[in-house]
């Protein structure tokens, strides 16, 4: 067995789906909790962060219990005559659960750094909560949101323990790169493991380079007036460019 394309393909699919899910859920949860003032705030916050501090195998075992035949999730899915344990969606679920806390924590921190007066200014200017989120909060918290996305992407790419517990190692179906590497080494298939390792390092370096590129300092946002250009990236991206 020297098919290294299949784990790469499964991993890419899983990581992209996971990143998309955690991006949306992480932002939604961060937005909700940063404005929630109830007594349960520390409890909810703790539950959201829990997968980060638990061993991945424990999370995977918990998911297995929940999603299995006798768990609530499994029983619910059984109503639709389906099951996700040891199927591809299980790799996404396990990776998403493990990556979510990183997206949530980083985004929440970034949201709380945004001056509430700036958001309030948008509200008094007639912006609803959606408009405040996409036109003010997200642009201002963007470096943090981006960092959270890259971190959860990296976490999803490296996910092993929880994935193995709930998705197993079915070649061509649920065997992601980390799982495939482990079983290649167990089977003594060192050449295959080496190739997969180089691929993972390549993906990791590429994403770190991407992060550095997207977070590079801009003269304008630093407040340095180097050479005031009428329209830069930000102004060009806006719907109304009144400079013309």
């Amino acid at each position: 067995m020297n098919d290294y394309l299949s784990p790469l393909w499964i991993s890419l699919k899983t990581v992209l789906a996971t990143t998309a899910i955690t991006f949306v859920l992480g932002i939604a949860a961060a937005r909700w909790i940063s404005r929630y003032t109830g007594k349960l705030k520390p409890v909810i916050d703790g539950i959201f962060i829990l997968p980060l501090v638990l061993p991945p195998t424990v999370v995977g075992f918990g998911l297995l219990l929940f999603m299995g035949k006798h768990g609530w999730g499994g029983k619910f899915l059984a109503l639709f005559h389906t099951s996700i344990v040891f199927s591809w969606p299980a790799t996404v679920i396990s990776a998403a659960v493990m990556a979510f806390p990183l997206m949530y924590m980083t985004t929440r921190g970034a949201f709380e750094q945004v001056d509430v007066n700036i958001e309030n200014a948008a509200r008094t200017l007639g912006a609803g909560e959606w408009k405040v989120l996409y036109s003010v909060t997200l642009p201002l918290a963007w470096p943090g949101v981006l960092a959270g996305t890259i971190l959860s992407f990296a976490r999803a790419l490296g996910e092993f323990g929880a994935t193995l517990m709930i998705a197993g190692n079915i070649p061509g179906k649920t065997a992601t790169i980390p799982v495939a590497i482990y079983f290649d080494i167990v089977d003594g298939n060192m050449k295959q493991a080496n190739i997969l390792m180089i691929i993972v390092i390549g993906i990791a370096l590429t994403s770190l380079a991407l992060l550095a590129y997207l977070k590079r300092p801009k003269a304008r946002s630093r407040g340095l007036v180097v050479n005031p250009v009428p329209s830069d990236i930000l102004a060009a991206g806006k719907k109304r460019d009144i400079s013309s």
Binding site: D115, I118, A121, S135, V136, L140, L234
Partner: peptide
């Protein structure tokens, strides 16, 4: 503290509302 939108130009700040 004026709470201007730091990511928008003065003109776009005024046009926001």
């Amino acid at each position: 503290n004026y709470a201007l939108f730091p990511h928008l130009s003065a003109g776009n700040n005024i046009a926001y509302g």
